[in-house]
């Protein structure tokens, strides 16, 4: 068996294993539940839902 083949097999288990682990972990820690709350995690009291946070710079006259 060549070095390449060994590398490929190791790579397979490493990649497959980490994908498997990622999904298992995500499901276990509830990343797939409470999705409506998840969507709101980027908002907080200071920049709540309903507050735009970007606009063109104001003209000098202001």
């Amino acid at each position: 068996m060549t070095a390449g083949a060994i590398l490929l097999i190791l790579g397979f288990f490493f990649l497959g294993g980490s994908a498997l682990f990622a999904i298992y972990w995500a499901a276990k820690t509830g990343q797939f539940s409470n999705v409506s709350e998840g969507a709101a995690t980027i908002f907080d009291e200071d920049e709540p839902v309903g507050t735009p946070t970007d606009r063109f710079p104001a003209k000098k006259s202001q």
Binding site: G4, A5, G11, F12, L15, G16, A19, L20, I23, Y24
Partner: peptide, 23 residues
């Protein structure tokens, strides 16, 4: 069952498009 399915799909491309041609 879902885990096994995802495991196979995720790595299948690597087997098919990298490992198979190499070997």
């Amino acid at each position: 069952l879902i885990f096994v399915g995802i495991f196979l799909t995720f790595t299948s491309a690597w087997i098919g498009l990298v490992a198979y041609p190499t070997l």
